[in-house]
Amino acid sequence: MEILLEEFYKQDLHAPQYIERRYQIDDRSCQINGISQSGKSALIKHTLLQRKKSSYLYIDCNDLRIDFEALNSTLTRFCNQNDISTVALDNYNDAVALPKIRQLIIASVDHYDYDELLTIRLYPLEYEGFLAFEPRYDESALNHFFQLGGFPAMHRIPSEERIRHIQRSLQYALTPTGFDIMLLSCSLVTQKVSAYMLYERLKSSRKISKDMLYKNVDTLARQGYIHLLGKFDHPRAVKKLYHCDTSVKNALSTQKHFGRLFENMVFLEMFKKEFTLYYDEGIDFYIPAQDRIVLCMPFGNREALFKQIEKIEAFIITNGIKKVEVVTMSNESTLQHPFVPVEMIPFSIWALTEGEEESHEDEHF
């Protein structure tokens, strides 16, 4: 194991064309959690490359040459002998015992309950983060966001290889059952979906038990490959399903449904800002802490909006809603309504200002 650790210690790291993300790592120990392709490895390597090469050790725990028992008995001693102050364990799993080191950085899809480690939750890029990767910011940026989604690597991959890259990444990261669920979910994005419904659809094409299906759905939701949005004040009601990134549906399905893709995109902007969201009948998103409703109408007009507001007037009055925002592709308008201010906002403006008043400054770890 000493020989392999020496190889890891001498290797040169690379983080080509790295663009700063919302989070930065300081000198505290932390764990970085996020789905495959969310940028965990790039963040770690970029952080380490700002330091003296002899001060850190980077280990990819997926390296098949690693004997974990030997690693556990050797790692702390190796670090002490070489005066290594930072150890980064990428693709971490709990077969690796945490070494006694001044700073430890681990990265994994799964979260581990280590009280001594701060947690950074890394998601695919939100729209504002995506713009940092764009060569110029103009009206084509939003269309580019629709095409590429939020995976940072998409900007470096040739256009003809992007679909296969996402497909391969998901196949590698997920169990066969988990991948089948992702395939099936492409026709159900933004729809009300129960685990039993997924089971009924999958059992006709493959042998699967309810327990196995439910376990995989829970894992996909816990890791962040899918998101399940509950109905307000009805915790047992069926939930709405959203993907981790808008590129997933296009990579796994030929079905086109712009309205659903747009709603998924709006959801992710708020989810990544850690708002507590719910849906209700006729209401895409309700944020109780802000007494705010967000509706998705990419090509909506004033007449259609008035009809929609009429349907949810009872909810607006009962719950004391102070503002209704209607996210569109390009329409911008303010409507006069007797009960609540209603504003139509283009996504490209809404996404850049969403949460400005509620969010704190960018977090640094």
Rank of each mutant, 00 (worst) to 15 (best):
Q171W: 07
D94T: 04
N216F: 03
E343P: 07
E357P: 02
I226N: 00
D67M: 09
D27S: 15
H144E: 14
E363G: 05
A70C: 14
K240H: 04
A153E: 04
Q191L: 03
L295Q: 03
S54I: 02
R21F: 00
E134C: 15
R206A: 12
E357T: 12
D138L: 03
Y286S: 12
T246Q: 06
A173E: 08
C30G: 06
S204Q: 07
E325T: 08
G300W: 00
E363F: 07
G300P: 02
R28A: 05
F271C: 08
A304M: 07
G39R: 06
G34H: 01
H111M: 05
F78K: 03
A97C: 07
E126Y: 04
N91T: 02
Y18N: 12
F347W: 04
S41Q: 04
P288I: 06
H227K: 00
I120V: 15
R136Q: 07
V96E: 08
L71H: 04
L228K: 07
R260W: 05
R21D: 04
L228V: 00
Y278V: 02
Q11I: 14
T190M: 10
Y112M: 01
L104T: 08
N72A: 10
I35V: 01
K272C: 00
E356D: 09
P16W: 09
I208S: 14
K272M: 01
N143T: 15
K322L: 01
Y112G: 03
R22L: 08
Y137Q: 14
N62C: 11
S194R: 01
L183Y: 07
F133K: 02
K272S: 02
Y92I: 14
T254F: 13
E274K: 06
Q167R: 02
N250T: 11
E69C: 01
S359E: 15
A289S: 15
L352A: 01
F68R: 08
S41I: 12
Y278N: 03
P158M: 11
T318Y: 10
C244S: 05
I293F: 12
L64I: 00
Q11F: 02
I105G: 13
R222L: 05
Q24M: 09
E263V: 13
